[in-house]
Simulated scan of single mutants.
Amino acid sequence: MHSTKPTTGPALHIVDVPVRWSDLDADGRVNNVLVLRFAEEARMQWTSVLGTSTEAPELMPVVVNVGCTFHTPIGYPATVRVSVHCTRIGRSSVDLCFEIRDASNPEVHFATATAVWVWVDKRSGRSAPAPASLRERCNKALSGMEMHSEP
């Protein structure tokens, strides 16, 4: 299993996600499972920007490990800002970290989520090299050269 240590390095992608009333649980805070959906949304928007489905249509990404540390509850109304970070890139896998903060006050840190993503050949079901654009962006970020755009 790969390490999914949180990072403070440069973000690969940043997205703002509004909290919906229906995201709240009976205690009036965002349900823990939905915090992982915020990370999922940021991850999928990032790969859409990269164009990985067009670049490598024979591949599919599979989440093989996911985790989350909750720092403070998320209420309503709110907008969360999710920043996507790469903590490790391998031949076919990438370790990602998602910092989930209050978009209007970034000092408020709601959660840190992690995921290990493996790229798989759709036909064989075996791991395959990650798309070149993803590898390039992660390598730049890990070397401190990657820049991101604000939401």
Score class of each variant (00 low, 15 high):
103 A>P: 13
55 E>S: 13
102 D>N: 05
42 A>R: 03
72 T>M: 09
37 R>T: 11
121 D>T: 07
11 A>M: 08
9 G>Q: 03
15 V>Q: 09
63 V>P: 07
123 R>G: 13
113 A>G: 14
6 P>R: 08
14 I>Q: 10
132 A>C: 05
24 L>N: 04
55 E>A: 12
134 L>F: 05
54 T>A: 08
129 P>Y: 01
2 H>M: 15
149 S>E: 12
70 F>L: 13
35 V>F: 13
33 V>L: 14
8 T>S: 15
118 V>K: 01
133 S>A: 07
118 V>W: 03
53 S>I: 03
38 F>G: 00
15 V>A: 06
104 S>M: 03
93 S>G: 08
49 V>D: 15
142 L>Q: 01
145 M>F: 10
148 H>N: 05
28 G>Q: 04
114 T>A: 03
133 S>L: 04
120 V>F: 09
108 V>S: 00
30 V>P: 02
35 V>K: 01
123 R>N: 14
49 V>A: 13
90 G>F: 12
91 R>L: 12
129 P>M: 02
98 F>D: 03
46 W>A: 09
63 V>K: 06
143 S>R: 15
62 V>F: 10
39 A>M: 10
70 F>Y: 15
14 I>V: 14
36 L>M: 15
114 T>E: 03
107 E>F: 01
126 R>H: 14
86 C>R: 02
111 A>E: 14
17 V>Q: 01
129 P>V: 02
141 A>Y: 11
59 L>R: 11
89 I>S: 02
74 I>Y: 01
22 S>A: 04
7 T>R: 01
97 C>F: 14
87 T>L: 05
69 T>H: 14
134 L>H: 09
46 W>P: 04
22 S>E: 00
90 G>E: 07
71 H>F: 07
121 D>Y: 03
46 W>L: 08
6 P>Y: 12
75 G>Q: 05
63 V>N: 07
26 A>T: 15
80 V>P: 05
6 P>E: 14
84 V>K: 00
108 V>R: 02
51 G>K: 02
82 V>Q: 08
130 A>L: 02
21 W>P: 00
107 E>T: 11
12 L>E: 07
99 E>R: 14
106 P>L: 08
19 V>M: 04
40 E>D: 11
46 W>H: 12
78 A>N: 12
70 F>E: 12
78 A>P: 03
110 F>G: 00
12 L>Q: 04
1 M>Q: 11
136 E>R: 06
92 S>C: 02
147 M>R: 15
15 V>W: 06
37 R>W: 06
49 V>E: 15
4 T>M: 10
84 V>S: 00
119 W>L: 10
65 N>V: 09
120 V>M: 07
59 L>H: 06
135 R>S: 02
36 L>D: 13
151 P>N: 06
5 K>G: 12
83 S>N: 09
71 H>Q: 13
72 T>W: 05
19 V>T: 08
139 N>A: 14
60 M>S: 10
137 R>M: 13
2 H>R: 15
